[in-house]
Design a protein around this nucleic acid. Structure first.
Lengths: 328, 328
DNA sequence: GGATTTGTTGACACCGGTGTCATACGGGCA
DNA sequence: TGCCCGTATGACACCGGTGTCAACAAATCC
């Protein structure tokens, strides 16, 4: 790989002049420009971003840290970030945080050591105060979940209103015994949705029954186990609110076995409309989350002094399908 | 952010000594070591990978370039690469190549300018000769599709055998008029599958009918259009082979409207087993592809002189579900 | 014609961790 | 005392693109 100094030697000029020609600096005489351009072509010069990055101390790279990059929700989010980054000729490094909250700091910090321009993070740990020292160097934007232990921008969906709307929808279809199936209330998102669920029950004058709340539904096996726990109750639920798309998807086999069961889930997923019954969901918009988060990073880089809204909560929408229709 | 020289000044030693302490070099006296460690702690020194990367000329980063990172197939592939990279304390930069083959070189080269250690690429263009000059600096491994115009490692799935098995499966269920629905034969993968489809017909003594092959099924609308073209034939197909998961998923609404239609698709997808009818597919293993590709990059970095198998074709497996059962 | 401006070009330093080599010092041995 | 060797430590350069500033020539102005 030829460097600028190689090109300079060949063209009989200084490296700086090559730099000027390469960056279309007008202060170069046509003759010199011609000579340099020939040398550039002959050596097929390709710049390394490494040197510029090192000098500026900031890589033209945005980071994306999410629980699982293979999850369609986060995949769409990452794709949106990447689209905006591409416009600014930036790259995207991504990392999956996995399941273990303890590992989050190590994983995220190894990303940050690369002097990213910005980081979009959907955290899994209960505390992000470890990010405090990095905030001065890197634009941090939280998505899906707010930051804890540190002040930072966030873009989240309206968990409370969404869960409330979904639950109300079930109530309006005549259900009184409504189960809540979730993963873990350690995650703020789930907690918010549980609160929304309770609010809807309160609205309808239905008493909250803790035994209807079952957590730990992470895959098909655990979802089935969680459901059979509900089924064994004296008054088993006739409807279920699933607190996220993964739970809903895990629950699909159960739905096929219990056709009379009504379901509404938080988070749309591929093929939800093609199942029988098609599944009523609260539609989230990962693309919007990713786009807004990336845009905020770019805005803050361009206008550091400007003031921004700290927390943005995106409205969510009920997508009514067949899974809570009477007899559905 | 404190640099090594900051720490050195505070500890009253040279930067090199700080470097030695930080890297656990045994040639440091206990007294000095203690002083330096105190200074490190007091300034909460965090190294930048930028300097080391710049000096070594190689970033501890693997690239992943795929058509669409939001596609579950490529998401799983990227996740597998990331898992292996993490073990070596490497990061992963990813990029979506999109739909336009013309843009592939520019997108990929902007990744490569970052002096990646390796690149896993599932290309969309018909020619990758532009990567020739990069191969000396960066380990290139192709996945899902082989390289064209350049010699490079590849890990692909057995398109021919998979398509042949799926088509044979349909034949065995009594179908003679079998449609082929694909995206574009410009993509080698699709071409290989079309050849496999024809081979299965030949095996069964069924004459190949070009009017049964329809391309351009990219989303639900175009898939529906493609299907209605088939439907208008004198002898419309009674079964369809869909050449990839996206096509199959786009075709699902059609299946619901035409319950007598048998389908087999190349590539599994979430919920395929929960649809009615559940969809018979050729199961690909994106995690295996990603793991093997990343492993090859790491192997080649560790043992540059060793010889490796250029092309690895992974076997695929028929997952029989309900979509080709009689009357299904 | 001398002073000032405008335009072209290059020397040099910088970013920060680290490989290379030199230096200094202490101990062992002839 | 002189020599050698091993250990501890530091000076310096390097990676490569580019910002800063100076040098110099040509053009313009009074």
């Amino acid at each position: 790989m030829a460097t600028m100094r190689d090109v300079a030697r060949r063209a009989g000029v200084s490296a700086k002049t090559v730099s000027r020609v390469f960056n279309r600096d007008p202060h170069v005489s046509p003759v010199t420009k011609e000579r340099v351009e020939t040398a550039l072509r002959e050596l097929s010069y390709t710049p390394t971003t490494l040197a510029t990055t090192f000098r500026s101390g900031r890589a033209p790279v945005l980071g994306v840290a999410v629980p699982d990059i293979a999850d369609p929700f986060f995949g769409a989010l990452a794709k949106a970030v990447e689209s905006l980054a591409a416009v600014q000729r930036m790259s995207v490094v991504m990392t999956s945080l996995g399941e273990d909250p303890m590992r989050e700091p190590a994983i995220v910090q190894s990303l940050l050591r690369q002097s990213l321009s910005g980081l979009v993070i959907a955290p899994i740990a209960a505390d992000q105060s470890y990010l405090d020292v990095w905030a001065a160097r890197t634009q941090l934007v939280f998505v899906d979940r707010r930051a804890a232990g540190i002040v930072a921008d966030s873009f989240t969906e309206d968990d409370h209103a969404g869960a409330r709307a979904a639950t109300r929808h079930l109530v309006e279809h005549g259900h009184v015994r409504i189960g809540f199936l979730g993963d873990s209330t350690a995650i703020p998102t789930s907690r918010g949705r549980l609160v929304g669920y309770r609010a809807a029950l309160l609205d309808a004058g239905i008493e909250y029954d803790e035994s209807l709340v079952v957590l730990g539904a992470l895959d098909r096996a655990s979802a089935a186990a969680a459901f059979s726990a509900l089924e064994r109750l004296d008054q088993p639920p006739t409807a279920i609110f699933a607190s996220n798309a993964r739970v809903t998807m895990s629950l699909v086999p159960v739905l096929r076995a219990h056709r009379q069961l009504a379901v509404a889930g938080f988070g749309d997923f591929p093929m939800a409309d093609m199942l029988e019954p098609s599944v009523t969901v609260i539609d989230q918009d990962p693309t919007a989350l990713g786009t807004l988060a990336a845009q905020r990073i770019l805005d803050r880089m361009a206008h550091p002094q400007r003031r921004y809204r700290r927390h943005t909560v995106l409205p969510v929408q009920l997508v009514e399908r067949a899974s809570c229709l009477p007899g559905g």
